[in-house]
Design a protein around this nucleic acid. Structure first.
Lengths: 233, 233
DNA sequence: GAGTGGTCTAGACCACTTT
DNA sequence: AAGTGGTCTAGACCACTCC
């Protein structure tokens, strides 16, 4: 094998997390223990741990230990819900409507979602921000990967916490395409705005810790008082 | 001093780059040389170099050496111009109009831009994408930091390359706020669209290698055929 | 072949947290 | 006091690039 030793250590840790042996929030063995288990030196185990920390998979605290990053409602909100007040403050969205349905996957869903699923679950939700209906979200996930999710309704506000806790899918990364659209009759009615009002449309592909695309999400936001904040580097 | 040794190494390298002693694209001394110069071990110098590589400030190539990241027109386009075709392909924008003016800074500009400038340069440009006027950009920079920039008109398409090559400001990071707006009479005329057409408005604060906010940028995009692509993690 | 970064080891000491 | 991660060192060997 041409891969470095630390990569093997990384792979075993990621596999253990994905398999549920290491639970989010749980503590890993110490550097020396891990080194012994995997047959490498402490420095090499350390390198693996530091790389996983930088990927956001682990959290390390001096004097305490190394822990699996838990996707809490707060961290999920902060990382993957990008609507902010104009001054940058985080907003707590409120769920005001939710519908789930199971349906055949479209071609593009089959082509992009993990496992090329024949069937998907579609989750339609409307969120209210500061008392104003402001977001229409449609999440689509493979039915086989998230079997039984429809029986868990009503779902928590932060879906990614559910994905992690109930299905072991830790969402770490998302690619988004943002465009401006005019409100159609549907959106106008739900958001209580005039037809033609400019809205932000965000298409998201979310990937989990294993790099699998596990969700397609289509969101529409009112941005008359709020802004969608992102970072480039 | 309570700071680790590698931080000192990082600081000296960043200072040398900011001072123009190390030019973008230029090669740094080898790990062992750098270790000797700064009085640390090779491993410590290595750690500093790796951290700078992860911040995008350096680029390391096995067998060749370590180089200062050069902001080329291509890399600048790729990193900081996020309009893409719907399939994700990069687009080369064309400059079709440019105006510069010098004016007093507004309160918010003085509060956010490096050095609390009294005077700023405003750069207004219109870009065409695939033959269609599609972007109206307004960049505002401190006049003292970019003195004489008005005499360089017409400016290159990639402003960040100019900032780097002529003024030593290496832009590495940007925070953006995105909202949907309706085209007003001005935008409608320039972009040859109907008033009220939904447009994407992006407000950007760009920071350089020293963490200084050196540019405020206000961009308006047609997104009827293109999309603004970003990544979250 | 000489010089570069990439990997790996073994061990030392420090700072912090917990008991 | 014991255990954890954080820093630092010194040295080895490998893979790659360039001459």
């Amino acid at each position: 094998m041409g891969s470095p030793l630390y990569q093997k250590v990384i792979d075993t840790i990621v596999a253990r997390i994905a398999a549920g042996e290491l639970l989010p929030g749980g503590m890993l063995p110490s550097e020396t223990q891990l080194a012994g288990e995997t047959g490498v030196s402490q420095g090499t185990a350390r390198k693996a741990l530091m790389m996983l920390e930088q990927h956001g998979i682990l959290r390390r605290e001096q004097g305490r230990g190394t822990f699996v990053t838990a996707r809490t409602p707060d961290s999920s909100l902060f990382n993957f819900f990008r609507l902010r007040e104009r001054n940058g403050e985080v907003i707590r969205p409120e769920l005001i409507d939710e519908r789930l349905c199971q349906r055949p996957a479209t071609d593009i869903e089959r082509a992009t979602l993990q496992g090329a699923p024949q069937t998907v679950i579609e989750i339609n939700r409307v969120r209210s921000l500061q008392g104003v209906a402001s977001a229409i979200e449609t999440a689509v996930v493979p039915a086989d990967l998230f079997s039984g999710i429809e029986r868990r309704a009503p779902l928590p506000s932060a879906l990614y916490v559910l994905y992690q806790q109930a299905y072991g899918c830790i969402v770490l990364h998302a690619d988004e395409t943002i465009v401006a659209i005019a409100a159609g009759p549907e959106e106008a009615k739900i958001l209580e705005i005039g037809e033609g009002t400019p809205l932000l449309q965000v298409e998201r592909l979310a990937r989990d810790i294993l790099g699998r695309t596990i969700e397609r999400r289509h969101s529409i936001y009112r941005t008359d008082r709020l802004g969608y904040m992102v970072t480039l580097d």
